[in-house]
Amino acid sequence: MSAGFLTVAAGGPPARSPLAEGSHRGAELEERDGWMVVASYGDAEGESRARREAVGWADLSHLPKAELSGAGTWIGSPAEGLATPRGDGWSCPLTPRRALLVGDTGAPPEGATLDLTSSLGAISIVGPEARETIARFCALDTRAAVMPPFGFRPGSIARTPGYLLRAGEEAFLLIFGAAYGAYMWEVVADAGSRLGGRPVGAAALTPALPAPRQEVTTDA
């Protein structure tokens, strides 16, 4: 036996995001890699504008997430607080012997992995008001001088344990316990809507969340 029951298996019923109670409301859904993903909320142009001019947030809980443990070059240094791009994902160091792999990183050359995709919810927050939105529920310092793109911080996210990854200048990824999904969606929506933002689907999000392979300059 293995811990395969942790993983969303191909061919089964579509996987449902832990945020679905909130994020699927009014959404147009499509199936991607076995998950029901929000394509849009019916106004792709408005959603793109929101994330360009204010802030947009999207349920990205379907992003693969795994714990990597053991020794190895992929772990990185937690002291630096920076995620390392790996494939189409990031390796985010937690301790000298553990890292959180986010996105499609491919298989690490060494160490053991454990699938945490279902254990952790994820919300991407993008746009010029992204930092202000996060500041409404999170005390982590997101100034570029302190947390440049690819910065990664474990910390309290809306009073729950979680992680914050800065994917780009104006793009962040909140990662948190899946059981808090509905709560977290409510919190982010409350904060973002006060700043002129709205929830967005994957279509509006894609250009704003840079793939890790991209070069990203810091505004530090």
């Binding site: 449902r16 679905a20 109670e21 809306a158 009073r159 899946a178 059981a179 509905a182 709560y183």
Partner: peptide, 13 residues
Amino acid sequence: RPFEAAKRSPVHA
């Protein structure tokens, strides 16, 4: 803000 950090099961809905 009036939000409570509640954990919900995947079957909550």
